[in-house]
Design a protein around this nucleic acid. Structure first.
Length: 579
RNA sequence: GCCCUUGUAGUUCAAUGGAUAGAACGAAGCUCUUCUAAGGCUUUGAUGUAGGUUCGAUUCCUACCAAGGGCACCA
């Protein structure tokens, strides 16, 4: 429709001998200003030295003279010279029909058709808690994965995890100090939370006790021993158990969160690969400085662009830094998935600067990778009570949040007749939705001030509100089936509802969201759609044998439920039929 | 000091250079013998400061102020 109207305007301008390179057509915020609007008369009024309102009138006359198809009800001049297009009943009727004809695919686009994309996100570390920061990365990464998938890309999901390093040694120290924490009974989550506690203890002592600091450093060195015979048996045993149990606990969480990774990359594997790359490029890209091996990226600064800086890749102790591992990781990704067109990495924005430096180094080695790497950074989770850090132990784990949200939801669900399994399943789906929604509702660059109460709220601006709207629609559809009234998008109904004016826009919103990697456009759109549907629901009796237009209202309800379901899926949220 | 983010109702967030700057929470009121009241319907309130570009600026540019992050051997 958008293109048709644009062509119409273009032809009209042509006939008036006015040339315009780019016609802007948008949806007015307020639907009383029409369904589409163009500012073209305002934009060109100066260059043609005409009054914009008069010009707009002329353009409209010309459009009407040219052709006015039955999708357009009327065209008006408004404000200072906007031209507003009002779509017809017939257009909205057809758009409902279109949704019903292909519900699964409604909203898809082919902007990334055939592209192969890998998205790396979540990245929790074994031996450390899975906290709300990881939840944030997971929600964003999963949604972006689904957005590019819905745009035609073949998408794979990757997770990169720090299985070596000081944090492991700290956790192991904590476990050695308090053997009770090594209890191997209970769920993965329970065992993992004990390990998390051991980590917090170890991290605390590392800061305040010199002697313990040395012990932990010693454990760390032992962890790097590769020869099986020389390994410390006890430490090794704890490591194997701890690694397994924390990784499995993460896996349990991914299941609840709705993520399934295709690739797991471990930091320990990347060090050697990265080191080799550094060695191969000594003198060309990397150089020695103060005993360390560094990349002096500032040599590549470009006027007007953010500046690079020097980063250490191999320390003077001859240990590879994170930069080197990242180098190895990127190489490994392209090796694992050679036909890859785009490698997206989702991390917090504190990593932005050094990722730029690493990316620069990589693109000097592999110029063909330069355009294939994309780093998406999100803000930080901030607590209303202050800063959170896993070292300080004041972390809110994903487990804890999900459990709490689920308990609150279970209390609310008492009046539905669910089997215990169903109840558990739906409660999980609703709690995930509450949390994901509170993360995805804002643009991803900024920090999120995390309010526990609000994050599990079910009212107003929330994930459960969207799910609830879907469940209500579904219950109407069940009733319609029982009463044997079939949906009919051809049935006549003179009134055009607000919800109809929104439903046809879904594909545009998806496209924009995918192009900008911004799930919040979907969120805002779904809230608007849900609100308009709830209003429609409140003011109309939809299933009614006496009402000849009932079958159209049911068709509309179907269309809404399909859009809502597809939209929620893009956010990584499941839409339960009952709640 | 330099580089990135971000400054919008009391609070948390929206607004591809457009019209009367949208929601939600909070507060006040109304609404279930109709399909899920986790709902609907009313009322209330905001663009950090100073310039510039533009027919038009929350949006773009410059300076300042404020918050957060980053800038050599941590990740």
């Amino acid at each position: 429709m958008e293109q048709e109207i644009k062509n119409l305007i273009k032809d009209a301008l042509n006939n008036l001998s006015i040339e315009v390179s780019n016609i802007v057509l948008e949806h007015p915020e307020n639907s009383s200003n029409g369904d589409y609007s163009t500012n073209v008369a305002l934009a060109i009024s100066k260059s043609v030295e005409r009054n914009p309102k008069e010009l707009a009138e002329k353009i409209i006359t010309e459009i009407i003279r040219l052709n006015i198809d039955k999708n357009i009800e009327k065209i008006e001049v408004a404000g200072n010279g906007f031209i507003n297009f009002y779509l017809s009943r017939e257009f909205f009727r057809k758009s409902i029909e279109e949704i019903l004809n292909n519900p699964e695919n409604f909203g898809k686009n082919n902007s990334l058709e055939g592209k192969k994309i890998m998205v790396e996100y979540t990245d929790p570390n074994p031996f450390k808690p899975f906290h709300i920061g990881h939840l944030m990365s997971n929600a964003i990464g999963e949604s972006i994965s689904r957005l590019v998938e819905f745009s035609g890309a073949k998408t794979t999901r990757a997770n990169y995890q720090g299985d070596v390093g000081l944090h492991v040694a700290k956790a192991i120290y904590g476990l050695l100090e308090n053997e009770k924490l090594q209890n191997k009974i209970g769920s993965n989550a329970l065992q993992a939370s004990n390990i998390g506690r051991a980590y917090a203890r170890g991290a605390e002592l590392y800061e305040i006790d010199e002697k313990i600091k040395k012990e932990i450093d010693e454990i760390n060195k032992k962890l790097y021993i590769k020869d099986n015979d020389k390994k410390d048996k006890k430490i090794n045993e704890i490591y194997e158990w701890g690694f397994k149990v924390t990784m499995e606990a993460f896996e349990d969480l991914y299941k609840i969160l709705g993520t399934k990774f295709d690739f797991y990359f471990l930091e320990s594997m990347m060090a050697d690969i990265g080191r080799e790359i550094v060695n191969d490029n000594m003198g060309k890209i990397f150089e020695e400085s103060e005993g360390a091996i560094v990349f002096k990226a500032e040599k590549y600064n470009i006027e007007g662009q953010p500046k690079f800086h020097t980063r250490v890749f191999i320390t003077s102790q001859s240990l590879p830094t994170y930069e080197t591992k990242e180098l190895g990781l990127t190489a490994e990704k392209f090796k694992t998935y050679p036909e890859m067109d785009l490698s997206i990495v989702v991390t917090a924005n504190e990593q932005m600067d050094y990722m730029r430096v690493v990316a620069k180094a990589i693109s000097l080695i592999h110029p063909e990778y330069e355009k294939k790497m994309f780093h998406i950074t999100h803000g930080m989770m901030r607590l209303t009570t202050g800063k959170m850090g896993s070292r300080k132990g004041n972390v809110i784990t994903g487990e804890f949040l999900l459990n709490d949200a689920r308990d609150a939801i279970l209390e609310k669900m008492t009046d539905r007749d669910f089997s215990p399994e169903e109840e558990e399943k739906v409660a999980n789906e609703v709690s995930v939705s509450a949390l994901k929604y509170s993360i995805l509702k804002q643009s991803i660059g900024g920090d999120i001030v995390f309010d526990f109460e609000k994050s599990i709220s079910f009212e107003g601006d929330s994930g459960p509100y969207l799910q609830y709207s879907y469940a209500r629609a579904n219950s109407i559809l069940e009733k319609a089936q029982k009463e044997n009234i079939l949906p009919d998008p051809h049935a006549f109904l003179p009134e055009i509802f607000e919800v109809e004016k929104l439903l046809y826009k879904f594909p545009e919103v998806v496209l924009r969201s995918a192009k900008e990697y911004e799930p919040h456009y979907i969120v805002n759109y779904l809230i608007e759609v849900a609100r308009s549907f709830n209003s429609f629901y409140g003011n109309n009796i939809i299933v009614n044998k006496e009402d000849k237009t009932s079958s159209y209202k049911i068709a509309l309800t179907y269309a809404f439920s399909f859009v809502m379901k597809n939209g929620l899926r893009l956010l990584g949220i499941v839409a339960p039929k009952k709640m």
